[in-house]
Design a binder for these strands. Structure first.
Lengths: 233, 233
DNA sequence: GGGGAACGCGAGCGATCTCTCGTGTTTGCT
DNA sequence: AGCAAACACGAGAGATCGCTCGCGTTCCCC
C-alpha cells in the first residue's frame, strides 16, 4: 500500500532489435488485427458492466474476462493492467461525452433564456448518464486508486471550465473567483441531482430532473445582472 | 464473495458454564475492563483515521491495528470482524449527530424565517462533518458491503424524515410525495455542498457554505405558500 | 496472594486478486 | 503453402487481506 514495485513499461527486448530501425514505434509495437479490436470492445463492454455492478475496486479482472467470455490471459493481451481498462473506458466515455455536450456547451446564444440553457444541459447530462451508467459509477467512486484519480480530476476540471464559460454569458461583471465557485456549485448540484434521478424511474425520475432544473435556475437567476429579466409567470 | 463461512458467535466453551445461570447473557458474555474500553476507543479512533484516508474497503484491519499501536489479534478481541468496526463507529457517530441535530430538527418555531432555519441546519451539518471527517468518508463510499449499506440506508431515511418534518412547517398543503421529493433534493444539495465546503479551507470554505445556503433558500422559498413572505432586501 | 478471566501478541492459515508464462490456435502476408 | 505474429487459453506464482490460535501478561475479585 505504501510503495509499489516498478512497472516494466517496455516489452521490447533490449538486445536484438530487428534490423529496420526506421520507426521508433513509441509504445505500440503491437499491430492489432480486426479480431483484437473486437475483443477490446467486448472486454470494455464487460468491464463497464462489472464496474457498474461492483465499482472499480471490487471488480476483479477475472470477472471481467468471464463476463466477456474470454480467459484472464486474453484480457492481459490487450490491457497491461486493471487500471488501463478503466483508463481506456473512461477515455472513450469522455470522447463520447464531449460529442454529446458539444452542442450544449460549445456556444451559447446570449439571447437564450437561462432556463432554457440550464434545462438543455441537465437533459443531456441525464440522458448521457442514463445511457452509460458506468460513467457515474466511475465518477462517484471514492476508490479509484492511482492514475484514475487524475483522470477524474481532469474531467472534473474540464466540466467546471465549460460551465464557467457558459455562466460567463450570464454572470457579467462578477469576479472570476466567484464565477468559478458558482460553476463548482452548479456541477455539485448536477451530480447530486443525477444520483437522485438515476435512483428512480419513469415519472418519478422526470420529476427529479425537473427539480434539479428548478434548483439551478432559482440559484442562478438572482445572479444574472438583469441580463434576461425574469418573465412573469 | 459469493458465500461466507458461518461466523461463530459464542466464544464461551459449551460444557462447563458457571453454576449461576441467572442471566442468559444474550451476546455479551465478555465483561469489559476499563482497559478494554480504552482500547476500543483507541481502535475506533484509529479506524476513523484509516477509513478517512482510504475508505472502508481499502482500509485493512492490520493497518487499523498498526495505527492504534496494537497487534491484529488484539483488534479481534474487541470486534468480531472488520464490518463490526464500521458499524460501531457509525453508531457512535449517529448518536453524536442525533445530539448535535436535536436542537435544529427537533422542533421548529413556525415563526422562524426559512432562511434562518436553513442557515442553522447547514451550519450544524458542516460543523459536525468538519469535526468528524469519517462520517462523510463512510457516507460517500459506494463500497461498504454487507450490513453497512443497511446502516447507510437507515441513516439516509432518518435524515430525509427529519427534513420532511422540518419542511412540513413551511410547505403546507403540498402532497406528501412532493414534500418527500423536496426533502431528498435538499439532502442531496446538502451533501454536494458539504463535499465542496470540506474540499476548501478558511474563507473559501465559508463562501461555499454561504452558497449552499443560498441554493437551499432560493430553492425552497418559492415553495412556501406565503408562509413567510420574502423580506425585501 | 491465588485463581480465573480479560487483555495482548504475532506468526500464519485460507481465501482472493492481479498478473505471468508456456503452449497451442488462428490470421495475414507473401 | 508456409511462416511469423497476433490471439487464446488456464494453471498458478506472488502478494495481500481478513481473521485465528496458542501462549504469555495484567487485572479484578475473593
Amino acid at each position: 500500500m505504501s510503495d509499489k514495485p516498478e512497472t516494466p513499461e517496455q516489452p521490447g527486448t533490449p538486445g536484438s532489435e530487428p534490423g529496420t530501425p526506421d520507426k521508433p514505434r513509441r509504445e505500440q509495437p503491437r499491430r492489432r488485427q480486426a479480431r483484437g479490436e473486437r475483443r477490446i470492445a467486448q472486454l470494455l463492454d464487460a468491464a463497464a458492466s462489472v464496474f457498474c455492478a461492483s465499482g472499480y475496486t471490487a471488480a476483479s479482472t477475472n470477472a471481467i474476462a468471464r463476463e466477456a467470455g474470454v480467459s484472464p490471459g486474453t484480457l492481459y493481451q490487450f490491457f497491461p493492467n486493471k487500471e488501463a481498462i478503466a483508463i481506456e473506458l473512461g477515455g472513450r466515455l469522455m470522447h463520447e461525452m464531449r460529442q454529446t455536450y458539444g452542442a450544449v456547451f460549445g456556444r451559447v446564444d446570449p439571447a437564450t433564456p437561462l432556463a432554457e440553457t440550464v434545462g438543455a444541459a441537465v437533459d443531456r447530462f441525464v440522458a448521457f448518464n442514463s445511457e452509460h451508467p458506468v460513467f457515474f459509477a466511475l465518477m462517484k467512486g471514492p476508490d479509484t486508486p492511482g492514475r484514475i484519480a487524475e483522470e477524474h480530476e481532469a474531467l472534473h476540471a474540464t466540466m467546471v471550465a465549460r460551465i464557467e464559460e457558459l455562466l460567463s454569458s450570464y454572470l457579467t461583471g462578477r469576479p472570476a473567483a466567484e464565477v468559478t465557485r458558482t460553476a463548482h456549485v452548479c456541477l455539485g448540484i448536477h451530480k447530486a441531482g443525477l444520483e437522485l434521478a438515476l435512483a428512480h424511474e419513469g415519472a418519478e425520475r422526470d420529476a427529479y430532473v425537473q427539480e434539479v432544473k428548478n434548483v439551478l435556475i432559482r440559484y442562478l437567476e438572482p445572479l444574472t445582472c438583469g441580463h434576461t429579466p425574469t418573465p412573469s409567470p
